[in-house]
Design a binder for these strands. Structure first.
Lengths: 186, 186
DNA sequence: GTCTATACAGTGATAGAC
DNA sequence: GTCTATCACTGTATAGAC
């Protein structure tokens, strides 16, 4: 039995494995074990090997956030886009059951490999949220501080809820952050 | 030339390497390369191999936090202990230049190996900070929420400041969190 | 306590048949 | 596009001489 794949179908599978095992912890044999895709196919899709696989994963995550979160924050009704961000973030991270791959990569020396993409992901998120907050009436300084606090708070909530093995820590943190933004835009 | 070591001197060196490279990224040859300590010595000190090395590192970190932060929070003057926590945290994490090993281990499957120690580290930190906040006048519910928010906020600030390669993100986050606690205990 | 030598499984990667 | 075979290398771990 021989299943035929497309590159686009493979990337989300890789994403889940990199998320769970980290960059160094992810080996080609584990990918094959979990997906049934052999080395031959993997190197056909990603001639650059493991590094290209991780790059593709980061690019796909980035594209998802751009569509679902950043662009609405920049262009749509500010309050609605912020509210949508909170539901999307909660869903995306499965209420704390799934970590942020980009954040995890930032913590160890994997960062050196992908520093541009990692920095970009967070910078664009903060910039987009700041723009929405300013449209909603915040000053530039206030909006910048709140935006940083929210993105940082999401990352911290993912770490803490996983460390405690308690998803309610994540959902509660999100609610606290959301209330703080609401208060700032009255 | 042959340097003689003690186990207690080796652990801090290992800590720095695990912090930079992560559990999977740390190999025995890299440890030898950076410390000059050969495999023979390493297995003499840590018969359980890499896992025992990481365990020893976590235990030492835990002991440091217990002495410098948790115990003062539980026993000393609440406001003074909280103020000391912020300076100690800022120094320990080198103003964002150093990550939290325990938090990093929590994010990938390394967590499974050390879940008890990881959960313990964060639970005791939150409990100690909550106790101090209650002595300073907060209600139990309020103190719990603030404590979780601070520990989570520290972790998030470490992720974000590293992702952006900007230490000022960390120091600014710490200031914001400190102000929030000050406001709660007036 | 440190060194050298060694075992052997697992690593990323490549080549060629199908 | 997938498979199998194979590559050179690095991984953790052990044993014994000093």
């Amino acid at each position: 039995m021989k299943t035929v794949h497309e590159r686009a179908d493979v990337v989300p599978l890789l994403a889940e494995i990199f998320r769970e095992l980290g960059y160094e912890g992810t080996s080609l044999s584990r990918i094959t074990e979990r997906t049934g895709i052999g080395k031959g196919s993997l190197y056909h899709f990603f001639p650059g090997g493991k590094e290209e696989m991780a790059s593709a994963v980061i690019a796909e995550i980035d594209a998802w956030f751009e569509d679902a979160i950043y662009r609405p924050l920049r262009n749509d009704d500010a309050r609605k886009a912020i509210a949508a961000m909170w539901t999307n973030v909660n869903d995306y991270f499965r209420s704390g059951g799934r970590i942020c791959l980009v954040g995890a990569f930032a913590l160890d020396h994997t960062r050196e490999r992908f520093s541009a993409a990692i920095g970009n992901y967070f910078t664009r998120w903060i910039d987009a949220l700041r723009a929405a907050l300013m449209r909603a009436g915040c000053t530039g300084e206030e909006a910048q501080a709140l935006a940083e606090e929210c993105i940082s708070g999401i990352q911290g909530a993912l770490v803490l809820s996983r460390a405690l093995g308690d998803k309610t820590v994540f959902t509660r943190s999100l609610e606290t952050l959301a209330r703080r933004l609401d208060a700032a835009v009255q």
